[in-house]
Design a protein around this nucleic acid. Structure first.
Lengths: 134, 134
DNA sequence: GTTCATGCAAATCGTTTGCACAATG
DNA sequence: CATTGTGCAAACGATTTGCATGAAC
């Protein structure tokens, strides 16, 4: 599919490249609205879908009712805080052997995998400790 | 929270225990409707939420627009076919060390993780091969 | 008999889409 | 000028919820 340039779409990609918080559509919309006051939320959805199709952006799905997005980089795993919902990139190296293991055990053709870790992020961990000491 | 007995809820759990396909709400609804012709879809949602709260059922989220459910058993990983959407339990052993690794690299308190593998299931793999040979 | 579960329909939420107009090439 | 992108609002699909009635205790 061939697309024309769009200032809005360019800016969305730029915003995503400069963020590591895996933002939601609403967050992106609010941020972009400063540059395009008439911006509609539908257009943010439309452009995010195009960017995903172009493989410049990845749609992420961590079990919430809404999606999150980030600019595509090297494959990595994620941590999700069960308290505040924050999504944090992990510095663990991507385990290529896992795909082969899954392939051997299932007979399916496996070409990728995702890992999500769950628990409490640093902030929430500390808040909880303070709470318990009171 | 204390709940009364409900024939509908019991049957939902029974259905889930006898299935390994991680069914959707609609699938469960259709199946349950044979026993309870007046059944409403809202009640299936309500009871699934209760079962999840009681930790008898797990809500699964594989990136589709709808949720899937299964009766809780030993932790295991999943394969998702990108062609037909099938979700298949894998026989890989749960890697306890992974949580510790994630904890070390992030500073977060990690207590669980999920792994999803992506690719083509056996059926879809074969279909594709037949297609290419024609 | 009081309280919770149910069916039904309306409401909600995130997302998509149809349309008239504006921007791109 | 032909075509795609946009804002707007309506439509959509999955899920939740308010309410009157029925089942559980």
């Amino acid at each position: 599919m061939k697309y024309r340039k769009s200032k809005q779409r360019n800016k969305i990609l730029e915003i995503l490249k400069n963020t590591n918080t895996h933002p939601t559509v609403d967050w992106i919309y609010d941020k972009l609205k400063k540059d395009f006051p008439k911006l509609s939320i539908g257009n943010v959805y439309r452009n995010l879908n195009i960017l995903v199709e172009q493989k410049l952006v990845r749609r992420m799905d961590f079990g919430s009712t809404f999606d999150r997005f980030d600019a595509v980089r090297a494959p990595h795993y994620h941590f999700i805080c069960e308290q505040c919902g924050a999504v944090i990139d992990l510095d663990l190296s991507y385990d290529d052997k896992l795909n082969q293991k899954a392939m051997d055990s299932s007979g399916c053709k496996v070409h990728d995998h995702k890992i999500q870790f769950y628990g409490l992020c640093d902030k929430c961990k500390n808040k909880l400790q303070q709470h318990q000491q009171q």
